[in-house]
Amino acid sequence: LQLFIKTLTGKTSTVEMEPSDTIENLKAKIQDKEGIPPDQQRLIFAGKQLEDGRTLSDYNIQKESTLHLVL
């Protein structure tokens, strides 16, 4: 599924993920695209901070969801 990652600067990146992927996997993919180390990334979806060990489906993240990346 395609996700949009929006940064505080207003920049939006697109990443392709599976519902079974963990937040950790997602942060690794963001690191590949943006060069931001996972330990500096905080991802927010629906007002919640996402935890590394959980999966996208745990948070009911659907295709074309927008996640907010806070550093």
Rank of each mutant, 00 (worst) to 15 (best):
T7G: 10
P37S: 08
P19V: 09
E18H: 13
P37T: 05
L3G: 00
D32V: 13
D58Q: 08
E34P: 01
V70P: 01
L8Q: 14
K27W: 03
E34A: 09
K11N: 10
L8F: 13
D21T: 04
N60P: 04
G53P: 05
L69H: 01
N25W: 10
E18V: 11
K63W: 10
L26T: 02
G47N: 07
T12R: 06
Y59A: 02
P38I: 15
Q49P: 11
Q31L: 09
G53W: 14
A28V: 11
A28C: 06
M17Y: 12
L71I: 13
T14P: 05
T9K: 11
P37D: 07
I23R: 00
I23H: 00
P19C: 05
R42I: 15
N25A: 14
Q62T: 14
Q49S: 10
R42D: 06
K11I: 11
L26D: 01
T12Y: 11
S65G: 06
F4K: 07
G47K: 03
R54D: 05
Q31D: 05
L71N: 06
L26H: 00
I61F: 06
G47W: 05
G47I: 01
L1G: 04
V70Y: 14
I61H: 02
K29F: 06
P38S: 14
T55H: 06
L1M: 13
A46F: 09
V15K: 02
D21E: 07
A46Y: 09
R54W: 10
G53T: 09
L67M: 05
D58V: 04
T55N: 05
T9D: 14
D58K: 02
E51W: 05
M17N: 01
K27H: 02
T9F: 13
K48M: 13
Q40L: 11
I30M: 04
M17Q: 02
S65Y: 06
L67C: 01
T22F: 06
Q41C: 05
K27V: 02
Y59F: 03
L56T: 01
D58M: 05
D52S: 07
N60T: 05
I36F: 12
I36E: 02
T12K: 07
T14N: 06
L67D: 00
E18F: 14
L26Q: 02
F45Y: 13
Q41Y: 14
Y59I: 02
L3D: 01
T7K: 07
T22Y: 07
G47S: 04
I44F: 15
E16C: 12
L8R: 12
F45L: 05
S65D: 14
T55W: 04
I36N: 03
T7S: 10
K29A: 10
E18P: 04
S13Y: 15
G10F: 04
P38R: 14
D52W: 03
T12S: 07
L71A: 08
I5N: 00
M17V: 13
L71V: 13
L3P: 00
F4V: 08
I5P: 01
Y59R: 00
I23C: 02
E51K: 08
A46V: 06
K27I: 03
E51H: 08
T12H: 06
I44P: 00
G10V: 02
N25K: 14
I61D: 02
S20C: 07
P38H: 11
I5L: 05
H68M: 14
D21G: 09
S57Y: 08
M17T: 04
K6Q: 11
G35P: 02
N60L: 07
L43K: 00
T7C: 13
P38L: 13
Q62V: 14
S20H: 12
S57F: 09
E34S: 12
E64D: 14
S65A: 11
G10H: 05
K33F: 09
K29M: 10
L26W: 00
P38D: 04
K6E: 08
R54T: 06
H68G: 04
Q31V: 04
G35M: 05
G35H: 07
D32M: 13
R54G: 07
H68R: 07
E18K: 13
L8S: 14
G10K: 03
G10L: 04
K6I: 14
S13L: 15
I5H: 01
L3T: 01
Y59H: 03
I44V: 09
G35S: 05
Q62G: 13
D52R: 03
F4H: 10
Y59K: 01
F45P: 00
Q41V: 10
L69E: 00
A46K: 14
S20Q: 10
D52I: 06
I30H: 00
E16T: 13
I61L: 07
S57G: 09
I44C: 10
T14E: 07
Q31A: 14
D32C: 06
T12I: 14
S57L: 11
V15A: 03
L71T: 09
L1F: 14
E24S: 13
E64L: 13
Q2F: 12
I61E: 02
E24R: 13
R42E: 08
I36G: 03
E64V: 06
G35L: 04
K63S: 15
L56G: 01
T66E: 08
L69D: 00
P19D: 09
E34L: 15
V15W: 08
S57P: 03
Q41L: 08
L8D: 12
D58L: 03
E34Q: 11
E51T: 05
L50T: 02
L71D: 06
E24V: 07
S57W: 07
Q2Y: 11
K33C: 06
A46H: 13
F45S: 02
K6T: 12
A46Q: 15
L1Q: 04
Q2K: 15
S20F: 12
D32H: 12
V70T: 09
A46C: 08
L71K: 08
I23P: 01
R54L: 12
S20V: 05
R54S: 08
L50V: 04
N60H: 10
D39S: 13
K11L: 11
P38G: 08
L3R: 00
L50C: 02
D39Y: 12
E64C: 12
E51R: 07
F45V: 03
Q40C: 08
G47T: 04
Q62Y: 09
P37K: 07
K33A: 12
P37H: 12
T14Y: 12
L26P: 00
L26A: 01
T9R: 10
P19E: 09
G35Q: 05
A28L: 15
K11T: 10
L71R: 08
K27N: 00
S13N: 07
L67T: 01
I44W: 15
S13V: 15
I30N: 01
L71Y: 10
G53A: 10
M17W: 09
L43F: 07
D52T: 05
T66Q: 06
G53N: 12
I23V: 12
D58A: 06
T55A: 06
T66P: 02
D58I: 03
Q49Y: 14
V15Y: 15
D58P: 01
L50G: 00
E24M: 13
K11C: 08
K29R: 10
E24G: 13
I44M: 12
K11E: 10
L8A: 13
M17H: 04
L8H: 14
T66I: 14
G47E: 04
Y59C: 02
G10D: 04
K63G: 14
D52H: 05
S13Q: 11
G47Q: 04
I44H: 09
L50M: 06
T55E: 03
I30Y: 03
D32L: 13
V70Q: 08
I44E: 09
F4R: 07
T55R: 11
Q41R: 01
P19Y: 09
N60Y: 06
T22E: 02
R54K: 12
A28I: 13
D52P: 07
A28F: 12
T9H: 13
E51Y: 07
Y59M: 03
L69T: 01
